[in-house]
Every structure is written in C-alpha cells, then in structure tokens.
Measured scan of single mutants.
Amino acid sequence: HNLTITQGKLFFHYNPKLCLSEIHKMEEVSGTKGRQERNDIALKTNGDQASCENELLKFSYIRTSFDKILLRWEPYWPPDFRDLLGFMLFYKEAPYQNVTEFDGQDACGSNSWTVVDIDPPLRSNDPKSQNHPGWLMRGLKPWTQYAIFVKTLVTFSDERRTYGAKSDIIYVQTDATNPSVPLDPISVSNSSSQIILKWKPPSDPNGNITHYLVFWERQAEDSELFELDYCLKGLKLPSRTWSPPFESEDSQKHNQSEYEDSAGECCSCPKTDSQILKELEESSFRKTFEDYLHNVVFVPRKTSSGTGAEDPRPSRKRRSLGDVGNVTVAVPTVAAFPNTSSTSVPTSPEEHRPFEKVVNKESLVISGLRHFTGYRIELQACNQDTPEERCSVAAYVSARTMPEAKADDIVGPVTHEIFENNVVHLMWQEPKEPNGLIVLYEVSYRRYGDEELHLCVSRKHFALERGCRLRGLSPGNYSVRIRATSLAGNGSWTEPTYFYVTDYLDVPSNIA
C-alpha cells in the first residue's frame, strides 16, 4: 500500500525493539523526510534493546553428524571492536523451508527459537588472519532439518551509529543413524509349514526405512522333555500350542467401542483428552525405555581390526524358502538304536541362519518350516543398504507352526516275539517326523474274553527296548493296539495285532 503524509511529521519514542533503520525507511515511504526535528525521533529510546544489523554474515563451514552440527561463519568486528559482546545463534526444527525470524513471537518477546549466546573469538592483530567464530550444536535429532541463523550482539553506541551483522536463515539436516526397533511384532501360524509375521514401523526411523531383515531359527525343545518319565503317576503330560491366527481386521481397528449394538453396526467412541494424553505418555515412556535398553543392555560386537582377528559373527547367506525346513542338525536320541526319531534339535552355532529381506511392506510369510516346531524370529529395521547396512537392534518374537495331521501315527506293522515265561516283546517304529517329539506310547492289549488293559511306555523305555515287553501273560489269544502321544496330543491307534500265548508248562520236552 502507498502511504503519503502531505502535512505533519513523524514522532517515535520509547520503541526499544524498533531499529532506527526501520524508522528511516518509514520517513522515505511516507514522504516526511526532512520535516522531523532532532528530538522527534529519539536516538536513545528507539532500538536500544534490539540488534540492528546492516551487514550480512556468511557461514564459512558446515559439518553434520547424526546428532551434531558444527558451524563456522566469517569474522565480524565493528569499528570499535570492544562493542562486540558476542553472537546469538538461533535454531529450531523446520520440516519445511518457510521459516521466518519472527515465527511464534508474542507480545512478551518470546519466540519459538532456541538461542545460544556465543563469546567472540580472540581478536588477531592481523586483519587478514582473524579467527572464524563458530559453535557445535549438540543433542539434535537424527535425520531432522533445522533452520539456523546467527547475528551479532553489540553494545549501545553513544554516537548512535547503527552497526551489526546478521546471516540469512539456512537449512541444515542432520545425518541418518540406526533406527529404533520395529514396533509390535506379531507372529502367527496359518499352516503346519508357515508363519505369518506382521509389525509396525519404528517410532524413530532416523532416516528413510529402506528394508527390513527377518531372521528365523528353529528352537530346540526343553531338555526336561527328553529326561522326564511322563508315565509316572502324578506327572502331567506336557503340551505345546501353536500360535493362533490373526483376529479379523475389524476387531483390530483402534479407537473402536468394545460393545456392539445388537441391531447392527455401531460407531466408534472418540477417545477423551485424558485417554489420548495417557497414550502419549505411555508411548514416550516406551521410547525412553527402549533407548535405555539399547544403550545399557546391548553391547556392540567388536569388529575385526587390522591384526587379522576374525569377526566372530557368522556370515549372512541367503537361502531359498524351500530350504528352511531342514535348518537344524538332527541327532538321534540314543545312538545305539537307529530307529528312534531325530527330534532332539541342538543347533550348531556355526550354522548360517536363513533370512529374508523385506522391502516396502511390514509383513512376511515364512514358508518351508517344520510342522509343530518353535521358531525364534528376529526382526531388524534398516535405513541404508549400501555401502553397508545400517540397521536397528533386533526385536524378537516366537511362534510355533501348526501340527501336521497323521504325523504322530505309527507307520509300519507292530511285530512281536514270544519268549519263555510268557513274555512277549512288542516292537514298532517311532514316527519319523512327529509333531514336536514323542513323549510316550500307549499300549492297549486284551486277552479274548477279558477286559482291555493299558500300559504306558516312556520315551526312554522305548529307546532301550525298541518297544516294550509284556510279562506274566496268561495263555490265550491276544490283540494289541499302540498309539503315540506327542507334544500336540495323541496320534491314531494302530491296526490290531494278534498273537497267541501258550502255557509254557505244557511245552513238550526233548528229553527222552
């Protein structure tokens, strides 16, 4: 807008934040220059609390790290170098490059900038070799853009010569660093050979998330399962459950009422301010606690030095998902009996873990797994792929695949051998790939016309006998059925096997 004052003059007093240069501009645009008398524009009460600059400061050096910015700028000295009290560095987070010096300023003089007072450097006698002032900004957020400017702080001049310097606002972004852990990993099994893994992005990506790394490792069953005799009275049979499938998407929606109208769909109840505040506090606490764990609990591995020492970490090797089922080394339970199943799973520490690289999504279907087997899954978020990966501390989750139908069934015939004193040795093959492992066998036998009897055969007993022995049988026709019990439950009964026990007292003698 054009402003013209045809008559009258300007009068400025007691404006401590208004620089004289701005008042002189007002004289020019209003056409009143030359009308004012000496005392109409006070030299001592206008701009006496402001830094009124008329020179431009330029930054000469900028260096960044993930949490620091090192700045240096060209030296500046007023005509009387004693008038320079120091520099004021202003900075704040700036997602967009549209910041002005006066953003967030209120009537009390406060604003949204963080201000650092910096002492002037030592003055050199040689004007050509003056030290460049600077400042190291610490405690910054990774991968965050900051708006920065600097200006001088000078003393009051009796001659009211307006001098000083100020830089333009520059924008500097800190470097990326390792992201925080992925949030809320959930693993479920939808079949006997697959596990579905879902997660949420890290709360602090500290860069642009480029991919996720998912490692999985087959877990050995508890050692007590191999040692305890679950045929003993009072000892509860062990059981394991597989990871249940995901709930429906509708039930997972946030901010939804727990109660549904019987007449149909209901609208979600909005969260109160107290609920939102509580969630923010919980989120802040979780982030602080995660940072504490990362800094205190997890110790970084030592990389190899120039002395030739090897990095103890196993090298990563990509495998196809079809090879995942046989990740671990199978060892027989008892070496003397080769027909026992290889369900003991000690994992070799030198073995390469299978892994998958996930790009542009937060889910993965891990296939080719062994049925009813526990897996430990390790999830890392990465925001750099080359020249070397920059990934987060791992988040861990466990899951067990679903049982395989008929995996616990005894394959092959049940054979028998009759000894003296009416002892019958029953023999059968253990299931080759049971659900988890076989903890015991149930032997059901009966003599024709009598009630059915049951015998429990422990895992250890089966390994020693290759089956079991029935003792003290009365003469007669017998039928026997056997079924295995694994961590997933009972298998199917075998087809009945028949044998006849004679009275050993009636056996004919070869003595003449």
Rank of each mutant, 00 (worst) to 15 (best):
T340Q: 04
D503W: 10
V501K: 02
V365T: 05
N490M: 05
V296T: 08
F285Q: 09
E430T: 09
D503R: 10
W493T: 01
G467K: 08
R313A: 13
Q380K: 05
D323G: 09
V297Y: 12
R353F: 04
C231Y: 04
V297G: 11
T307I: 03
R313P: 13
D385I: 10
E350W: 02
R400W: 09
S248E: 05
L453N: 13
K302F: 07
R481E: 05
L437R: 14
H454D: 13
H254S: 14
G489M: 08
N383L: 08
P245D: 11
G476W: 00
R471Q: 13
A463H: 08
S342D: 08
S363V: 14
T241R: 09
P245M: 02
S284P: 05
L237Y: 03
G467R: 09
R353E: 06
Y504S: 12
L321H: 05
R376W: 12
V297W: 11
R466S: 12
S398R: 12
V327A: 09
R469V: 09
D311R: 10
R218Y: 08
A335T: 13
E221T: 06
T303D: 08
E362G: 03
E378S: 07
K302M: 09
E465Y: 13
E258N: 05
R481K: 14
S305F: 13
R469L: 08
F462Q: 09
C391K: 02
Y448R: 12
D250T: 10
R459G: 05
G449V: 00
E217S: 08
T340E: 14
V439G: 08
F289R: 06
A335D: 13
V359M: 14
P238A: 07
V329M: 12
F226H: 13
D311S: 15
G322H: 06
Y500K: 12
Q275P: 07
D385A: 14
G306N: 07
V329T: 03
N383R: 03
E290W: 04
S268Q: 14
R447V: 08
R390K: 06
R390S: 07
F499E: 00
L369S: 02
V414N: 01
H461F: 13
T272Q: 08
D506R: 14
E388Y: 15
F226L: 10
A394N: 08
D291N: 15
D323R: 11
I438F: 02
V329G: 12
A407M: 05
Y478Q: 02
S251A: 06
F226Q: 06
L225D: 03
H454G: 15
D273I: 13
A484Q: 02
A335F: 13
K233E: 14
E420K: 15
R316W: 14
V443I: 08
R318G: 03
G264Q: 03
I410N: 03
V414I: 12
L277H: 11
T307S: 08
N295P: 13
R313K: 15
R459H: 15
S248W: 04
E227F: 09
K233Y: 11
A484P: 13
L437W: 02
C382F: 00
A405R: 11
S320T: 09
E217L: 15
V414F: 03
A220T: 14
D222G: 07
R471T: 10
P245S: 12
T333M: 10
C266S: 10
V296Q: 08
P244M: 14
E279F: 03
P244N: 14
D311Y: 15
L440D: 05
R400N: 05
L213V: 06
T502R: 10
E356G: 11
N206W: 06
E281H: 15
T347H: 12
S268I: 12
A394Y: 14
L426S: 02
L235W: 13
P238T: 09
E265D: 13
K432P: 13
T340I: 10
E362K: 07
S257G: 08
R313N: 04
D385R: 05
N490W: 14
C231W: 03
S262Q: 05
T494Q: 03
P496S: 12
V397H: 10
V299W: 03
S304Y: 05
S342V: 13
E389V: 07
K317G: 07
G325H: 08
R481H: 03
C391F: 01
N295D: 11
D323Q: 15
S444V: 15
L464S: 07
P434V: 10
V365E: 11
A395E: 12
T485A: 09
L235A: 08
L505P: 12
P338D: 05
S367R: 10
V334G: 11
H211A: 09
D503A: 04
L473G: 01
S348T: 04
R319N: 10
I438A: 04
K406H: 08
P349S: 11
S341F: 09
E249C: 11
E279C: 01
D503H: 02
P332T: 06
F246D: 09
K317I: 10
E351S: 14
P270M: 14
H461Y: 12
K271G: 07
K287S: 06
L440C: 14
N360L: 06
G489Y: 11
H461P: 03
V443C: 02
N383E: 02
P496G: 01
L487V: 05
N477V: 02
V296S: 09
K253V: 02
A484L: 02
S283Y: 14
R218W: 02
G467E: 02
K460F: 07
H425I: 14
S363N: 04
I438Q: 03
P508K: 12
E282W: 15
R353S: 13
I276Y: 11
D222V: 10
V359G: 06
I410G: 02
K302H: 13
T401N: 01
D506M: 10
L379A: 04
S284W: 15
L225Y: 03
Y441W: 00
N360D: 04
V345Q: 14
P354Y: 15
I209D: 09
V439P: 07
P431V: 05
C269H: 05
T340H: 03
R390N: 10
A309K: 13
R400D: 05
H425P: 01
E362M: 08
S341I: 05
N360W: 14
S398L: 14
S203Y: 04
P349R: 14
M402L: 10
F289E: 07
T494D: 01
S444F: 11
E350K: 08
P387I: 15
F215L: 09
E249A: 11
E452G: 09
E281C: 04
V507N: 15
N208Y: 11
A407P: 02
P508S: 04
E433F: 15
K317W: 04
L455C: 11
A484I: 04
N421Y: 03
L228K: 09
E227Y: 05
S251Q: 14
Y504M: 04
C266G: 14
H371V: 07
T386K: 04
S392A: 02
L235G: 06
L437E: 06
E279A: 06
I377E: 00
S243F: 08
V423P: 03
Y375S: 01
S348N: 14
S283H: 14
S367W: 12
V423L: 02
W242C: 01
V507M: 13
S479K: 03
H425C: 03
V297H: 15
D250W: 06
D408E: 01
T373A: 05
M402W: 09
L505T: 06
P475R: 07
A463F: 12
V507L: 02
E404K: 10
N360A: 10
R286I: 03
C231Q: 02
Q256E: 04
P403G: 03
F462T: 03
D261R: 15
H294N: 01
Y478G: 00
F372P: 00
V443L: 09
H461W: 13
E260M: 11
Y504R: 03
Q384S: 12
K287D: 07
E362I: 12
R400C: 04
K236P: 12
V480H: 00
T272G: 08
E290Y: 03
L232T: 14
T497R: 15
E247C: 08
V424L: 12
E451F: 14
D408L: 03
E362N: 07
S474T: 09
T415E: 01
R376A: 07
T328C: 08
S367Q: 11
I209L: 12
A407T: 10
D204M: 00
M427D: 02
Y259S: 13
L235R: 09
F289N: 07
H211Y: 15
R459L: 07
Q384W: 15
G325T: 12
E351R: 11
T303H: 04
P270G: 02
R353N: 14
T307R: 14
G306I: 13
R286L: 06
L237Q: 10
R466T: 06
